[in-house]
């Protein structure tokens, strides 16, 4: 093993096993396995569409409810054979709108703070804290609504003569809003931090204050990205289940009173599974029709958010 041992040309050396047949077999096997994994993700989507589609068709067949009646009916009463989805849509809309009112401004302000104001050390603590918050299961927020939010609402409003129901829309809006704040702030913060430094420096060089740079240069530059995060947050609020089940209850009705209970698309699905409906009955099948409506509305919002975000990326490339 002296240092200057002459290298024997590879082809003549007996020390090399050379490529084995096993090696190409491994390559092909691994490739096939990876393709299979990727296929499973596609099959999942196909499965969702297939399940929802087939069972929804069966629902319309068995319940003798027309599509138009389903979409425009204002009464939802499976025992009476009435399947109007509007009360669910109204409930979903209330919760989504109310939680957005809370989450979007707070989320945006904290995104601005994290990206523009926070010293790096504060940021290093706050960002993981927000992420931890995002990891709390939704059932916890639902329980918090029952334990804390509704009693507080009762304590405030009942002395004023406004009755507050145990399950009510307002507390659902509050807990769902708090729940989606981390989503808004972390996605918006990513977008705002990505705004080129040169833009900020240009603003400061013209004599603008930090406030002006943040609100008039950085925010407009990242606006479509911020919008995309808003849309995604609304989509999350629409799809939220457990927090709403425990906070807003399961009574399908169209009401403007935020202290009354309501039923959303997601909670209806839970109530049907938890109920007595037998497999294959129209009531049981209606959960798939409502699930289809839920799936389509969140899908539309997610696609919209992606389109908005893509436009933002194009501006900066």
């Amino acid at each position: 093993m002296s240092a200057l041992t002459r290298h024997i040309p590879a082809s003549h050396s007996g020390l090399w096993a050379g490529p084995s047949r096993f090696r190409s077999l491994t390559e092909a096997g691994v490739g096939a396995f990876l393709l299979l994994c990727a296929t499973i993700t596609v099959l999942t989507t196909a499965g969702i569409i297939l399940v929802l589609g087939l069972e929804t068709l069966e629902f319309f067949e068995k319940s003798k409810v027309g599509l138009l009646h389903f979409l425009t009916g204002t009464v939802l009463n499976p025992e009476g054979g009435k399947y109007g989805i509007l009360p669910l849509i109204w409930g979903t809309f209330q919760v989504a709108a109310g939680s957005s009112v809370i989450a979007l401004p707070i989320g945006l302000l904290s995104a601005i703070y994290l990206s523009e104001y926070a010293p790096s050390r504060v940021r290093a603590v706050l960002k993981p804290a927000l992420e931890l918050l995002a990891g709390i299961p939704t059932i916890v927020y639902g329980y918090l609504a029952l334990l804390l939010v509704t009693p507080v609402l009762k304590a405030i409003f009942e002395p004023m003569g406004i009755p507050v129901s145990t399950f009510n829309v307002a507390s659902a809006c509050i807990v769902v809003g708090v729940m989606i704040i981390p989503l808004v702030s972390s996605l918006s913060e990513d977008v705002l931090s990505a705004v080129p430094r040169g833009l900020r420096e240009a603003g400061y060089a013209l004599g603008a204050t930090k406030f002006e740079v943040s609100t008039r240069i950085v925010l407009p530059a990242g606006l479509s990205g911020v919008m995309a995060s808003f849309i995604l947050a609304v989509s999350r609020a629409i799809g939220e289940t457990m927090a709403v089940v425990l906070a807003a209850g399961m009574r399908p009705q169209i009401t403007l009173n935020p202290f009354d209970s309501c039923e959303t698309m997601t909670t209806y699905i839970v109530s049907v599974t938890g109920g007595e409906a037998s497999y294959g009955s129209p009531e049981y099948l209606s959960l798939f029709a409502v699930g289809m409506a839920l799936f389509l509305s969140t899908l539309a919002l997610n696609l919209l958010s992606e389109i908005v975000l893509r436009r933002y990326r194009e501006v900066y490339r």
């Binding site: 093993m1 240092a3 041992t5 290298h7 020390l15 090399w16 096993a17 050379g18 490529p19 084995s20």
Partner: peptide, 22 residues
Amino acid sequence: INGYRGNMDDLVERSLRRAALW
């Protein structure tokens, strides 16, 4: 990965010496 069957430590030393890094 190319199936070398000789003494690996020797090969490493030889190669590093050859590259004037040993």
